[in-house]
């Protein structure tokens, strides 16, 4: 019964949408995390307040509600978004808020003496951040960024609610068409797990490359 190769094709299409959402979501979350995280450390009161408001708002409300706002409420004030755009926007801003705290705490974890060396060498605040503090902080951020990216991957399934045909959505389709629950959802499980493992592996590789030499051995 049923054409399983066709169903597998459906699921793979769904996986492609999920990957697309994850990649674009991360592409938005990363710069947003840096902007808000560094904003939290700004010399200017207004910038700090703005960054804090953004972070608290997106961490304090659910991704589900944020997605509905992006897709159903923004059009009411003139911003018409495709489901994909709405999904990327909600996911990127939501995970960006978590990433911002990662950026902030990583920069703060770099010892005061590094900052003081920058002052003594007459670097500007921005130069010190760009060439001394951020490169060291980035190594600290990578593992948590990996977790954030996996959280984002898992959160992509909410977009099936605005009828984006992602992996979870397609699994529902296959289930309703075949009457089989175990097979499509087992497939979904395996695919999500494979994607998450790929992210983990990528992050570990990156971390290993970035920490070269810090232990005193030039590889």
């Amino acid at each position: 019964m049923g054409d399983w190769s066709g169903y597998i094709g459906l699921m793979l299409d769904g996986a492609r949408v999920t990957v697309e959402l994850t990649v674009l979501g991360c592409a938005l979350a990363l710069p947003v995390a840096f902007a808000a995280g560094l904003g939290r450390l700004s010399r200017f009161w207004a910038v700090r307040a703005l960054a804090l408001a953004y972070i608290e708002f997106f961490r304090g409300t659910s991704i589900f509600v944020q997605l509905f706002w992006a897709y159903f409420v923004l059009p009411l004030i003139g911003f018409e978004l495709t489901p994909l755009q709405a999904g990327v926007l909600a996911l990127g801003l939501n995970v960006g808020a978590y990433g911002a705290e990662v950026v902030r705490s990583a920069v703060q974890s770099i010892g005061r003496e590094q900052h003081e060396a920058c002052v003594a060498l007459n670097l500007t605040r921005w130069q010190g951040l760009r060439h001394v503090l951020l490169p060291q902080a980035f190594v600290v951020m990578i593992p948590t960024f990996g977790n954030n990216a996996i959280e984002l991957l898992k959160a992509t399934s909410v977009v099936s609610l605005i009828s984006l045909t992602d992996l979870t959505f397609q699994a529902q389709v296959v289930r309703s068409q075949t009457g089989s629950t175990a097979i499509p959802f087992l497939t979904v499980l395996v695919i999500y797990f494979a994607l998450a493992s790929a992210i983990s592996f990528g992050m570990k590789t990156l971390e290993r490359r970035m920490t070269r030499g810090l232990d005193g051995i030039r590889h």
Partner: peptide
């Protein structure tokens, strides 16, 4: 600050840069 340099008790070298890069960074930037 351009008139003054300081050497610290705990060196405060930049651990992610080579010895040469530690010395060239500030002249190039400032």
């Amino acid at each position: 600050r351009a008139k003054i340099g300081m050497v610290f008790q705990l060196f405060n070298l930049f651990p992610h840069k080579t010895v040469l890069e530690n010395v060239t960074l500030a002249p190039m930037l400032t």
